[in-house]
Amino acid sequence: MNYFLCLLILLTTAAFMSDKPAYRLFDQKLKPSRYDKLLKDAAEADVVLFGELHNNPICHWLELQLAKDLYARKGKQLVLGAEMFEADNQQPLNEYLQGKISDKELNKQARLWNNYDTDYRPIVDFARKNQVPVVASNVPRRYASMVARQGLASLDALPANEKQQIAPLPIEVDLTLPGYKAMLGMMDSAHGSAHSSGSADDAAKREQAANFPRAQAIKDATMAHFILQNLSPGQTLLHVNGSYHSNNFEGIGWYLRKQRPDLRILTISSVELEDPDNPEKSSRDLANFVLTIPADMTKTY
């Protein structure tokens, strides 16, 4: 009896090992996890930050599945949010969700990403069908561009109505946070500042380079701001954003915790690997859940 039981276990294990899964899930310490555990934890969270790879179909499919399953559990207590919609496009987005305008009208009135139809429309249409709110959380791109070119002070001169589309000013930016620090290092290298002579010109170049992570921070702060603006007690807000906006519990999550330390935040990070069964050590503590996807997975663009 024991012999046949052992044989069955071996055959089952062999079949599992020979499978070619589209993704694997791991916890924060890179121990194997399961979707039902992710769903349970997500339903108990106030905010879920789904860090995606923008051109990866598995990310978009799993976002939709998580939205559907959270809706089955939370009903009207579910709210969706997305980096892919900028704050000043909230009105046309609302009108589309309410059935007042068509998809063609939404495309005319909102600045939709090029991959909207294939990657984001399914989750928006799910929200429309079930009357689930969708928060246009991102800062209008022109303001992020202003910061990248001219610095944070450039936002001060904006009219009051335009400032309403940004997180309240002044916005704290901590360039020592690892994510922003890494961006600053890349910009320093790109501008040849690694061998700085200490001149005033070098200092000016470094200050200009620092505007790049500051522009990223404006996006993170604004997304956090509009998440909190649209979150009520008992709700779960599932927010879709690039992984770099929430990796290492920084970015959006950092700004959320600054304002609401009590908030229950769950993060998901997506990584592409040659061997999805064996995540790299660098993915440890990347997020509460790490979604590993084969590196050769088909891209949406």
Score class of each variant (00 low, 15 high):
301 Y>S: 13
101 I>W: 00
97 L>Q: 03
55 N>E: 14
249 F>Y: 10
131 Q>I: 02
229 Q>E: 12
271 V>E: 09
146 M>L: 11
97 L>M: 05
55 N>H: 15
30 L>F: 06
150 Q>L: 12
178 P>H: 05
265 I>E: 03
84 M>H: 11
18 S>Q: 11
175 L>S: 04
207 E>R: 10
293 I>K: 03
114 N>P: 07
71 Y>S: 06
193 S>A: 14
158 L>G: 03
257 R>M: 04
63 E>S: 08
16 F>Q: 12
185 G>N: 15
4 F>P: 00
157 A>V: 11
31 K>N: 13
237 L>V: 04
238 L>K: 02
42 A>E: 11
175 L>T: 05
123 I>H: 02
234 G>Y: 04
148 A>L: 01
16 F>W: 14
132 V>C: 02
72 A>M: 13
289 F>R: 03
175 L>W: 08
188 D>G: 09
257 R>Y: 08
272 E>A: 09
244 Y>M: 10
196 S>N: 02
90 Q>D: 10
121 R>I: 06
261 P>A: 02
157 A>M: 10
52 E>C: 13
213 P>E: 01
272 E>D: 04
276 P>M: 03
206 R>W: 09
130 N>C: 03
17 M>T: 14
256 L>N: 00
205 K>V: 14
200 A>C: 09
86 E>V: 15
278 N>T: 15
77 Q>W: 14
66 L>Y: 06
22 A>V: 10
211 N>L: 03
2 N>F: 13
291 L>P: 08
226 F>Y: 12
132 V>T: 10
228 L>G: 07
101 I>S: 02
289 F>C: 03
85 F>S: 07
179 G>N: 15
232 S>Q: 15
137 S>G: 11
244 Y>S: 09
41 D>S: 13
183 M>H: 05
110 A>S: 10
176 T>H: 12
250 E>H: 00
212 F>Y: 09
188 D>H: 11
198 G>S: 04
227 I>W: 02
106 L>N: 00
112 L>E: 01
193 S>R: 10
100 K>T: 04
148 A>F: 00
171 I>F: 11
32 P>M: 07
207 E>D: 15
32 P>A: 06
190 A>I: 10
230 N>P: 05
198 G>F: 07
154 S>G: 10
136 A>M: 04
89 N>D: 15
28 Q>L: 09
26 F>T: 03
65 Q>C: 07
27 D>M: 04
209 A>L: 06
88 D>G: 06
188 D>K: 15
232 S>T: 14
3 Y>D: 13
190 A>Q: 12
189 S>T: 13
54 H>S: 09
52 E>T: 09
